[in-house]
Write a protein that binds this DNA or RNA. Structure first.
Lengths: 140, 140
DNA sequence: GTTTATGCAAAGCATTTGCATAACA
DNA sequence: TGTTATGCAAATGCTTTGCATAAAC
């Protein structure tokens, strides 16, 4: 399955999404994926924890971290390491790059077509390329 | 001043390097820059703290963090955010990219000539490009 | 009924802070 | 002497861990 622009609006859709990725839907996982995929923005664990709590679902920190790790493993989220020391999770499953506003900390997605990257094979040696992360740091 | 491949071997050279970057040389700063520029590798604050202690210089955590921030501000170090939750400091002052071995956590530098990146102006909008970070994640 | 997920509270670790002392110019 | 750097210890904040309870199949 490949869904590059997932957007969900209710629990049933969330459950279907989870099942599609081989994830057992539980109340907490549904709440987490609803928060993440409803507003479709970049989020770190602590804020996600707060938002899920703010919705009516009781949840613990451990569950948030467990679930994020699970989702990344199943390919439902991408993990980002930008100028922050927080790990940011991205619901945009399409390959893409990032525009990082150094002043505000805001992150924008860039379609891969917007940045051209060429990596000669010899650079990789015997290793195989898992991914290419491009972050454009911009000011103003 | 522009030194893209700095390597120092004694305290006098370290002091000269610091002065060249407008940094008052103190015993701790000399020790820190010696560790960093002698082995020329990517290092995070906790390891740097241990290594400076292992050399004969008494030092505190705060000084390590203060100094790293100072060095980055003066352009003597680059700060990296890779797959880790640690901030990594890089003595390679030349513009360059990174090869990140996801299995081992090892980081290799890539000369910018080894990766071709094209960013159309319209992507940036009104913002000005501060930097382009490319990380090739490789396995095996 | 067994497996799997969740919750809780505490621990771990990197980083920051405030303030007192020490080094420097 | 006045400024700047350092050290210490505690606090902060994110993340992890261990284990008991609860939910899912």
């Amino acid at each position: 399955m490949k869904m590059e622009s997932v957007q969900i609006s209710d629990a049933d859709e969330a459950a279907a999404l989870l099942r599609a990725y081989g994830i057992t839907p539980t109340r907490q996982r549904i709440a987490i994926s609803t928060v993440l995929f409803a507003c479709r923005q970049h989020m770190a664990a602590p804020e996600l924890f707060r938002r899920v709590q703010a919705s009516d679902t009781s949840i613990s920190r451990s569950t948030v971290y467990n679930t994020l790790e699970l989702f990344v493993g199943k390919g439902l989220l991408q993990e980002l390491n930008l100028g922050d020391r927080l790990r940011i999770y991205d619901t945009n499953l399409a390959p893409h790059h990032h525009l990082y506003h150094v002043d505000s900390g805001k992150i924008e997605d860039l379609d891969i077509s917007q940045v051209e990257v060429k990596v000669p094979d010899q650079v990789l040696g015997n290793s195989s390329l898992v991914g290419v992360d491009v972050t454009l740091r911009v000011a103003g």
